[in-house]
Computed example of a mutant assay.
Amino acid sequence: MKIFVAGASGVLGRAFTRRALADGHDIVGMTRSARGADVVAAAGAHPVVADAFDADAVAVAVAQARPDAVVHLLTDLAGGDRTANSRLREAGTRNLVDAALAAGVQRMVAESISWVYPSGTRPATEDDALDVEAPEPRRTTIRGVAALEGAVRELPVGVVLRFGQLYGPGTWFARNGSTADAARDGALPATETVASFVHVEDAAAVALQAVAWPAGTWNVVDDEPAPGTAWVPVFARVLGAPEPAAVTSGDIGRPVSNARLRAAGVRLLHPSWRDGLGRE
């Protein structure tokens, strides 16, 4: 299968591309810079340079690639700017979907996030509403996700993957990542907020499988949602960081259910964050 990967030079994009090439797929990887193109080419894929905000450039890139499927892994996380990332989810996704529709592409798999549900103690399922009325700055994030997911569903086969917090090599939770730095600096408190995780290699593996799935939405998280009071101390000990301070955030978060994923027979290599958080 020929797959057009938008965001191919990112952490998840690189992991996906490696797996897809190993499975014999033909990969065209879109990136916005010459440096990113070098990364894509070094992996063995065909690079194309286009800015996701440039609708004409994206349309040309997709049309010339003539892919069987588009995999949307675009993010803007380098500076930790949630507003910039939401803008990319809205405008970048719109351009990518329009380009796919114009090129006659039937299938798209897109990266979303799982921390989109209103706070609560009941595990959230894919059928639960998004927290679109949350106060700022969370509202901007959720509405960006809603725009992304709505656009992707315009494709005949639009698959939305709501990933947990990515950890593993190249992520913020890697030993050289920004969250690990915060833990070593004593700036990562242990709060009551519940989070759900997924290893980047599991995320890539599921995304590759999803290229053949029917339209739908999936929570892609491990089996053990955990409050910060559970995972932050473990993370700190693995890193040799100071014992974190216990702080009340006022947000209990929400556990996220992966029951739909498990019912489909998907098994993760890392079923719990305890298997690798901070170890790579």
Rank of each mutant, 00 (worst) to 15 (best):
R87Q: 11
V40G: 06
E90N: 03
A41K: 15
L73D: 07
R66P: 02
D51Q: 10
D54W: 01
V60S: 08
P47T: 07
A50W: 14
A91W: 06
V70C: 00
R82H: 08
A61S: 11
S86M: 11
T83V: 15
L74F: 03
S86I: 09
V39K: 01
A63T: 11
V40P: 01
A69C: 09
L77W: 05
L88E: 11
A52L: 13
R89S: 06
V40Q: 01
A41E: 09
A69G: 04
D76P: 00
A78Q: 04
L74S: 13
A55I: 05
D81W: 09
P67M: 07
A55H: 12
T83G: 08
V71E: 00
Q64A: 10
D76E: 10
S86G: 15
V39T: 06
V58L: 09
P47N: 05
L88H: 01
V70T: 02
R89Q: 13
Q64N: 15
A78Y: 10
D54V: 03
D51M: 14
G92Y: 10
A59S: 14
T83R: 08
G79R: 12
L77M: 13
S86R: 05
V62K: 12
D81Q: 14
Q64T: 13
T75N: 05
A52P: 05
T75Q: 12
N85T: 06
D68Q: 15
V58H: 14
A84K: 05
R82A: 11
D51R: 05
P67D: 02
A41P: 03
A57Q: 00
A43F: 07
V40D: 04
A69M: 03
G79D: 13
D51C: 05
A61M: 14
P67S: 05
V60G: 00
L73M: 12
E90C: 04
E90Q: 01
N85Q: 01
A57L: 10
V48C: 12
V39L: 11
G80N: 03
A63V: 08
A61K: 10
V40T: 00
R87A: 13
N85P: 07
A69P: 07
D56A: 12
L74Y: 04
D56R: 02
D76A: 15
L88W: 01
L88A: 12
A59D: 06
G79Q: 13
A65W: 08
A78F: 00
R82P: 06
V49Q: 13
V60L: 09
A57E: 15
G44P: 09
A61E: 04
F53Q: 12
V70A: 07
A57I: 01
G79Y: 00
A41W: 09
N85I: 11
S86Y: 13
N85S: 14
A43L: 15
D51P: 02
V71K: 05
A59M: 00
V58G: 09
H46K: 12
P67E: 14
V39R: 02
L74N: 10
L88N: 07
A59C: 10
L73R: 02
P47A: 03
A61C: 06
A78S: 11
A61I: 15
V48R: 12
T75P: 04
A59I: 12
A63Y: 05
A78T: 06
A91Q: 15
E90M: 02
A42W: 15
Q64H: 14
H72M: 08
D54A: 07
A63Q: 14
